[in-house]
């Protein structure tokens, strides 16, 4: 889900940076001092998750765990993602520093959507179903925003959008299952992480 350097147009990059700056600032504002260790841990998990890659057809995709970040952190997931993506760009050339704003916006919005999906259903659904919905929704929203960024950047990418959707849908299912398993573990061992 990382967009490389030289792919996006200047207007899309600008919008990405403005939205990312707003998201990071609001996320830091909503971050209580007690939550800082949690944010650092989730940022470390997000940093590592992108290294887990697996092929789907001719494409290669990687884990994101964006839904989990949204469920556990809420708005502070955005600054956590910003740090993780910046280090991924510097150390592994995932994405890039110029496209960091757009990548933070796309994945930050995806994480927030996951958190929203988890909280939206309240007690009407079991916590496991809500966790699955969070992991699934995060990838779906991230894919929609990724497609939109590529669509508005260049007509060259429009033909490949169905391929993106086709490769991201299996990832959405995988992320849904993983988020369910991890949230289930958190509920049993550290339920106070979900209390906020």
């Amino acid at each position: 889900m990382h967009i490389s350097e030289g792919v996006l147009s200047v207007p899309v990059l600008t919008i990405g940076w403005v939205a990312a700056a707003g998201g990071v600032a609001w996320g830091l504002r909503k971050l209580s001092p007690e939550k800082i260790p949690h944010v650092a841990l989730i940022a470390a998990v997000l940093f590592l998750a992108a290294l887990v890659r697996f092929p789907i057809g001719p494409a290669s995709i990687h884990l994101t765990l964006l839904g989990l970040a949204g469920v556990l952190l809420g708005w502070p997931a955005v600054p956590a993602l910003f740090i993780a993506l910046m280090l991924q760009a510097v150390l592994f050339q995932f994405g890039g520093l110029v496209s960091l704003g757009a990548n933070t916006t796309i994945m930050g919005a995806a994480a927030l959507s996951g958190g929203l999906a988890f909280r939206l259903f309240g007690t009407r659904l079991s916590i496991m179903l809500r966790a699955f919905a969070a992991g699934f929704a995060a990838v779906v929203v991230g894919t929609i925003l990724l497609c939109a960024a590529l669509w508005f950047s260049s007509a060259d990418f429009r033909g490949a959008l169905p391929l993106i959707v086709a490769t991201q849908l299996p990832l959405a299912l995988i992320e849904g299952v993983l988020t369910t398993l991890i949230v289930g573990f958190v509920v049993r061992s550290m339920p106070r992480l979900l209390a906020s």
């Binding site: 800082i36 650092a40 940022a43």
Partner: peptide, 29 residues
């Protein structure tokens, strides 16, 4: 730099940044 050391470096930076942020907030408090 080997990939393993990049991973260690990245994790170390993130966790130290978290510790630094917590130390700064506790100090200001």
């Amino acid at each position: 730099i080997p990939t393993v050391w990049k991973i260690v470096l990245g994790l170390s930076l993130i966790l130290n940044l978290g510790l630094l942020a917590q130390w700064a907030t506790q100090r200001s408090r």
